[in-house]
Design a protein around this nucleic acid. Structure first.
Lengths: 209, 209
DNA sequence: TTATCATTGTTGCAATTGCAACATTTTAAA
DNA sequence: TTTAAAATGTTGCAATTGCAACAATGATAA
């Protein structure tokens, strides 16, 4: 059961979803959902995974969000760029869509499951902020090397291991760090040569500290 | 009245603050509050302003958060970096401090003002995410020029004017963009020479589109 | 299996940036 | 008001990075 429905039983869940006029949609792999990103909604990945990708006028691709199972996304949570954004499913993906405007309507205040839902949403939202902070943390480092090392350190702190298995491709990592892929590749090579890491493809082992 | 107490009357507010064991503290200008950033709290700037600043092992200063009146901050919302973080008041500042662990305790579910408070907090939290997204938007641009232009565009979209008055110093802007100050200064000069902007100090006028 | 496409790895070179050092201007404090 | 401190502006130079072009490897579908 999804964190969003923590302490809300199935019966209440159904009432809640009706109350919020929400719907569950399924998409096949590699579906592009442009409209979904633009409407004023909150979405939750119930099953599968997806990415939100921005392409600016220079054609630079940037991954705005990496959405796994349980991830939350939507207008309020994603970026409101002037550039083109699109959401692409990476697997067959089941998504819960909730109209954001309905969520804060105060007519619902009397339903205990509604109040619990808001609390759950707050909790999840705080996790989103933590993720954003991590990315900002990484992006504010000035050199590619420092960006990589900060990314590694955060990973290690979270997973408690020096053996990193990237959750996405190196190409995507370069996008996440907002650096040129080949320049990043070169920096990884230097880090290897200087004995800081071992790496092959998505597998990276930290040899320091 | 602060957005956080939207639809909560003064009488209820007092009950609420007691319920959450929260306190209102006042700090003089230029006070450094190290502990505040580290404890598991949510703070709201009721009056005044402050900055959360990170200094990494190279001595690079980065502004993590620019806190104005009504801004929210705290462990969950700010970054959990390995580097040193400190919060510095820019004016005489009044801060509401709430123990975060208390906020989601479910014993309080029966109080309507408590539920309203959670809703208000959710709403504010979403604004925080929007700000984070804006910064990420800017930081993912690859050149200083593109970072500046993206920053200007966001400002224009928000304020609806081509006349920009920076909310902080140019030095701080460089930190916000995570670029070298003098390099940014040079880029601003080029933008002026090429007729894209006029600028003097914190005043910048967009001449394009 | 084979063909096709995506990802990864490599490198020279030009463009951008950070750094350092300093002059000038603005702001804040005594 | 005077003085000190902070912010802004400028520039040469070296380091870092992006870009382009290509080879090698790995994954996916016919």
């Amino acid at each position: 059961m999804h964190k969003l429905f923590n302490k809300i039983n199935v019966n209440q869940q159904n009432k809640l979803l009706k109350l919020l006029e929400s719907s569950i949609l399924s998409f096949p792999k590699n579906t592009i959902m442009l409209s979904t990103v633009k409407e004023n909604i909150i979405g939750i990945i119930l099953e599968g995974s997806a990415q939100i990708i921005r392409t600016d006028y220079n054609g630079n691709r940037t991954i705005i969000e990496e959405l796994e199972e349980e991830s939350i996304f939507g207008t309020v949570i994603s970026s409101l760029s002037s550039d083109e954004c699109e959401m692409i499913t990476k697997d067959e993906t089941k998504v819960l869509i909730i109209d954001y405007d309905r969520i804060l309507e105060s007519e619902n205040n009397n339903y205990s499951y509604y109040n619990q839902f808001i609390k759950n949403l707050l909790s999840i939202t705080n996790n989103v902020i933590e993720q954003k902070n991590e990315r900002i943390e990484v992006l504010t480092k000035k050199t590619i090397r420092d960006k990589l090392l900060e990314y590694f350190n955060i990973y290690r702190k979270k997973h408690g291991t020096k053996n990193i298995y990237l959750p996405f491709s190196l190409t995507d990592l370069a996008d996440y760090l907002a650096v040129d892929r080949s320049a990043m590749s070169r920096e990884l090579k230097y880090l290897k040569e200087e004995g800081f890491i071992e790496s092959k493809g998505r597998k990276i082992t930290l040899l320091y500290r």
